[in-house]
Nucleic acid binder design. Sequence first.
DNA 1: ACGCCCTCCTGCGAGC
DNA 2: TGCTCGCAGGAGGGCG
Length: 283
Amino acid sequence: MPELPEVETVRRGLAPVMEGHVIAHASVNRPDLRWPFPPRMAERLTGRRVQALRRRSKYILADLDSGETLLIHLGMSGRMLVSGDPLGVFVHDHPAPEKHDHVVLEMETGARITFNDPRRFGAMDLMDTATAEAHKLLAALGPEPLGNDFNEPHLVAALHGRNTPIKAALLDQHIVAGLGNIYVCEALYRARIHPGRKAGRISARRVAALVPIIREVLADAISAGGSSLRDFRQADGELGYFQHSFDVYGREGHPCRTPGCEAKIRRIVQSGRSSFYCPSCQR
DNA sequence: ACGCCCTCCTGCGAGC
DNA sequence: TGCTCGCAGGAGGGCG
């Protein structure tokens, strides 16, 4: 579920309780999520110090002092709950275990990190840190949308000749890594591009304009996530989702927010996913 | 290589 | 109140 901004928000929420700290005990409550967990995962995590918490696309990567890296993917419904942290970042008591609490990390500090994922589309894996980029799930990913490798020439070249709708092209993680259904809808609205338009038939000028728009949409969402992190500290410590107001996503039938536009937001289904757009602003 | 479709799984809200 | 239905933010895999 969570797209890049939510995953980055989760990473930032986990960093103070994980980075530099030792996992005193790991509990793994089932053999798999989307895929089987790696062999002896609990043993390979227990006693390890987390040296750094990174993000690649929608994946969180925890580098351990054993030379291994823990990959965490939240899938559609994965959440992290941080509780009992004596550092005072999160001040919540440990909650009672809930259904779908699949992996629990008890930190030496007393903090507890619980991975809860009802739909089990999430994943965890362990790999050698030195060759992490070669991991099956990471190797083919396109550039980070907030990084320097995501630029106008790259996007123009990646979309050139593509017969697929721009909506599907931007969801393709080989082209740009980290966008999901919500932020593609939002970016196309800001760029005034109809989601059904063929990717290869958009002028280079309009494609180039998409690059800074995608960056802005994500950056705005990350700052909104940052404010919601502060709310988590006062609320319940749950990481993974945050309240954010969207211009088109989930607003079918509501008025377009473009000043002077009288149209209502529409929903269509493209390759099985909902697309929201303004029929007047987006062409 | 590309484009399209299906699939995994549970939960929730709308509508009857 | 209780059902059934449709839908959900991801992404790998198989097909033509």
